[in-house]
Design a protein around this nucleic acid. Sequence first.
DNA 1: TAGTTCACCTGAAAGC
DNA 2: TGCTTTCAGGTGAACT
Length: 285
Amino acid sequence: MPELPEVETVRRGLEPVMADAVITRAQVNRPDLRWPFPDRMAERLAGRHVAALRRRSKYLLADLDGGETLLIHLGMSGRMLVTKDENAVAIGTYVHGHAAPEKHDHVVLDFDNGMRVTFNDPRRFGAMDLFPTETGHKLLDKLGPEPLGNAFSAAHLAEAFRGKASPVKAALLDQKIVAGLGNIYVCEALHRSGISPKRLAGHISAARIAVLHAAIRQVLEEAIAAGGSSLRDFRQASGDLGYFQHGFRVYDREGQPCPTDGCTGTVTRIVQSSRSSFYCPKCQR
DNA sequence: TAGTTCACCTGAAAGC
DNA sequence: TGCTTTCAGGTGAACT
């Protein structure tokens, strides 16, 4: 389930393939994913030059010539797989030869460098859209700061939490407060900072918010360095697994001993906002 | 207005 | 073994 580190890992895998390349052919195999694809998307993409591949929150953004940007969201189960035409010049380490089409291959992009990028999404929670680069996209307009950017500070977090009556878990999942966090990394960051996911956001001291702010950055940086987390669906663009799931301290570890030094607690699972929260009731207060 | 719940969707795992 | 049920979660809409 792609959160910011997984999307950034995919972007890094796709950048050498897509950036400064021309889409020679686009194939769209169904009319929609989460939302309908833009009209005539395949024709509109064919022949376009990709100037750059960016990431904003959990969105991939491919800037095209002609002043348009292709927005890609991986949803819950979306994958971008790269294959290489056997006759083309190698770019990176990718699967050789275009694989036979698989179930849930919804969009296929061929590039003038012989590479093919296939968007596969079994659960169809993903999305693609085209928008004028200059005006932006409504999905991007409401997003809060990037957690690894300069705009995301402890002071920003404290201001966003001020007066909030919702649990800190729900507040951190709010993309308007900070963009890119999902269930896994919120659980991990809260554990590292010793804050209970049940604690109301507005009731956390400035000092503890500063610790939380540092923990969010730390866990995301470590996850990106590990190539993201592979749980159930996620693969890198090369098809490889990420490795950060081995670094989870609480996520999906219900019933196991708390890994905090000196803590004798047990990782517990509760449901908040219809999502599982994993935490240690003993050292997270 | 703020906070919470639900629907969307399919594959994997659990239960029978 | 095979069928049915439950669960997973990002996001916007609907609801309280």
